[in-house]
């Protein structure tokens, strides 16, 4: 075993990761704020009004990053889950369960903003378009994961069961996506086509990318905060958590 390898695995233990996460959180919040402000500034003040869609298109600065994140977080969650099953890290399961609510939130946001965009553009809150339908199914998968984890009392078992579900889900997502797409083309013909103009103005693209980065940073910050809470909760019987809590309470008690 080389020295380097030991360093890598050092942060796999909650005790080592807890302070590291604590130090990283403010940075990610800061970056989220910077990127968010820059992205929204470009989105609302710099980007030109769209020729066809008017001002209503500006919701894509939230909508597109949210859908990207919802899909990507599921992959990350499945990655942590697989890692947890393979190496039996305690931290992996905690990360997976810390990510799930954020992923579900983004899936919901994507559907919600999509509906807000669809009403003026398509004249309907909801159409059974392939993308909308698969996003909805993705939300169902998140809900199933969260429900399974919260129904099992033993956290170790909850982690492992959730991991299997996440991996089964990740294998199924492409199958579901293509079957929904096929179903959609058979039933709807070409009544609705999502016209994301390929020649999107550069400023719009920049705004969207900055907002996507902001969503990234937000997701990481929130997941770290949640994972810290999960750690304290699950490891509450250990010495390091007691020491940690004593430190937290000390200033309040001293005054």
């Amino acid at each position: 075993m080389s020295n380097k390898q030991i360093n890598w695995f050092k942060f796999a233990s909650p005790q080592a990761f807890y302070p590291l996460a604590g130090r990283m959180i403010p940075w990610f919040w800061g970056l989220a704020a910077v990127f968010g402000i820059a992205g929204l500034y470009i989105g609302f003040l710099v980007a030109p009004t769209d020729a066809q869609q008017g001002e209503g298109y500006r919701i894509i600065f939230l909508h597109v990053p949210a859908s990207w994140m919802s899909m990507f977080i599921y992959l990350v969650m499945a990655f942590w889950a697989g890692l947890g099953l393979a190496f039996n890290f305690r931290l992996s399961g905690m990360m997976a369960s810390a990510l799930a609510p954020t992923g579900a939130l983004f899936a919901f946001l994507s559907l919600w903003t999509g509906a807000l965009w669809g009403k003026p553009m398509w004249g309907a809150w909801w159409v059974w378009d392939a993308r909308l339908t698969s996003e909805l199914i993705l939300l169902f998968l998140y809900v199933g994961f969260i429900a399974l984890q919260s129904a099992i009392d033993d956290p170790r078992r909850a982690d492992k069961a959730g991991a299997i579900l996440a991996l089964v889900g990740v294998v199924n997502v492409p199958i579901i996506y293509f079957s929904v797409k096929w179903w959609n083309t058979l039933h709807q013909g070409s009544s609705v086509s999502l016209t994301k103009s390929p020649s999107m103005a550069m400023t719009m693209l920049w705004g969207m990318l900055l907002c996507a980065l902001a969503c990234w940073m937000y997701a990481i910050a929130v997941a770290l905060m949640r994972v810290r809470t999960i750690m304290l909760e699950r490891e509450r019987h250990t010495d390091w958590v007691r020491a940690e809590l004593r430190e937290l309470c000390e200033p309040a008690g001293g005054e």
Binding site: I137, F140, L141, V143, G144, A147, L148, A151, I152, A161, I164, L165, V168, G169, N172, I175, I176, S179, V180, W182, W183
Partner: peptide, 29 residues
């Protein structure tokens, strides 16, 4: 898969449908 995951879990029946029904969609289609 769903039946094994929810084995002995409280509220197993409803939970099972939550887990399995989304995965059934391609077969239904």
């Amino acid at each position: 898969i769903g039946a094994a995951l929810t084995l002995g879990v409280r509220g197993g029946g409803v939970l099972l449908s939550l887990l399995v029904l989304p995965l059934y969609i391609p077969v239904l289609i």
